[in-house]
Design a binder for these strands. Structure first.
Lengths: 193, 193
DNA sequence: CGTCTATTTGAATGTACTCAAAAGCGGTGG
DNA sequence: CCACCGCTTTTGAGTACATTCAAATAGACG
């Protein structure tokens, strides 16, 4: 149940087995069925979620009712609305499952207790935040300068696992185009060989 | 010289005057003239820069030679290429000054010494990173779901000081459109009253 | 097998871009 | 102080890329 998390954390920071054991008590396992929500917009986001298996997504709904996906999370990734989680403000995002999934939840207060119990984890979450921020910068850069086709190719290259696991219309939403356009882009690409 | 920085930091964390004094020695003041560079792409980004006055920008140049602005920094803001700064990898960004400016530079090793000398600053930089990450998320969300006009209006609302200080073509680059399009959007908006 | 969802395709439309040129503005030097 | 130069902003005309609306086809799931 915690094997994946253990590998995930010790990839980034040094931790004795004993220290890791102390961590596990702060997490709560939850199974989330396809289409079930972990967060509805308007609620406060209470959890950091680490995905053991399955796939979740975080998205907004605009004034026309269209969804825009900000993040996918598959096995070995974290998902949350950090703004709401940190500030306690109601979220403007939704998080739901694209497949039956299992996550490990870390509540805000549990996280603080975790930092007390194993201070090295502060460093872990700082590193995690840094790499997320850098990834966000790259995505902004892409959105500004790349065509839809380029954005799709970058997506395929960056997240090959997601391409296999996630429906095409969800990927279209992530890169900011309609499913129809993505279908045409893929047709073009396969014509090029 | 350090007044602005002092106010900036103590807005976010508690710090005794004595502690703040210890901080100042790790910074180096530099004046940057309009069009001068703080970072050229291909170089490693050595500094975190705090802007005392003036205005800098960080941008990429795409394969067509067009610039895309990722960040502005005026008085009381930080600017750096965090990816390069943290990883030591050559940067793909440029940082230059849009106006004559004065910055306080914090080198990577100086920052580590600073953390030794005043551990509370670790917390400060974590908070800074968190708010930057959240802002980046909002910008991605905008880029996905909003029209050029909406993006401009959001920009005006979010950064009123920048609108006054920065040429229009630079704002166009930041929101991901051409200067011509922004000119037309503004004309439309003023026609609506 | 039937239903629901995802993908593909077509035709018409629209938003923003490109190319080109004019007008406006600010600073510099004669 | 004015003339000139460089840069920014505006405007026009034509174009391209992606969207919308609509419908057909393909796939997945019970």
């Amino acid at each position: 149940m915690f094997d994946l998390l253990c590998i995930h954390i010790t990839k980034r920071i040094q931790l004795t087995p004993e220290e890791f054991d102390r961590c596990t008590q702060f997490f709560e396992r939850r199974r989330i069925k396809k289409r079930q929500f972990l967060l509805h917009n308007g609620e406060v986001c209470r959890y950091l979620a680490f995905v053991n298996h399955g796939c979740l997504r975080r998205y907004t709904i605009d004034h026309k009712g269209d969804e825009h996906i900000l993040q996918f999370a598959i096995e070995d990734w974290w998902i949350t609305d950090l703004n709401s989680f940190l500030s306690g403000a109601p979220s403007t995002h939704n998080i739901d499952a694209l497949q039956n999934s299992e996550v490990l939840l870390l509540e805000k207060s549990a996280r603080e207790n975790l930092f007390e119990a194993v201070p090295a984890l502060e460093r872990f979450f700082r590193l995690l935040l840094e790499s997320n921020y850098i990834a966000a910068q790259k995505r902004i850069s892409q959105a500004l300068s790349a065509s839809a086709e380029e954005r799709y190719l970058t997506f395929v290259e960056t997240y090959p696992r997601l391409v296999k696991q996630v429906p095409q219309n969800q990927i279209a939403s992530y890169i900011g185009i309609t499913p129809q356009s993505l279908s045409r882009i893929r047709k073009e690409l396969s014509a090029k060989r």
